[in-house]
Amino acid sequence: MFTVRSTVKTITAHVKPTQQLRYKRDKAGLNPQLERIVNQLSVMSAARKQPRLLKLCDEDYIKHRTVMKAWSLYRKNKIEHNESLLEKQYQSMNEAAAELQSINPKLYEIANEHQFGKRFPLEIRTPTDFPPRQIWFYDYFPKVDGSKQQ
């Protein structure tokens, strides 16, 4: 059986300690550097850290299967609902565009102009778990149109 400690000892037997020692520490174990390596490797190794195997009885196993099935159904329904919503939104956009084109081609052209440099505004908030102290910014004043704006 190889342990982390024994393998490190054999691999790094030739590494000399950089720290000056007052006494010879042959019997005191590894030097501090190697000790640290052993420590770090031991975190990654499963030895003595793994829990006992989870053994479910038949009833518990059926319960587990039921829970997982319910969750997958819930997810599936949610995804399907979202997809159908997207489909409907696409259809209604299409319908509106066709309608606009047939009755007023000029407005249709404006509606389909490419919006260069259109970006999501920086001022908009990303939802957080809890609200900020000032929930909404009310004191907004519109920018006075300078030379940049048309």
Binding site: S92, M93, A97, L107, A111, E113, P121, I124
Partner: peptide, 29 residues
């Protein structure tokens, strides 16, 4: 259409409002 809607909003709701229209094109009719 988008400009007309945004301007109309400012007529009924004052111009101290900052909005960002998602697109030029309509979402439905």
């Amino acid at each position: 259409l988008h400009k007309i809607a945004e301007d109309g909003l400012r007529i009924i709701g004052g111009d101290k409002i900052n909005t960002w229209s998602v697109s030029n094109s309509p979402a439905a009719v």
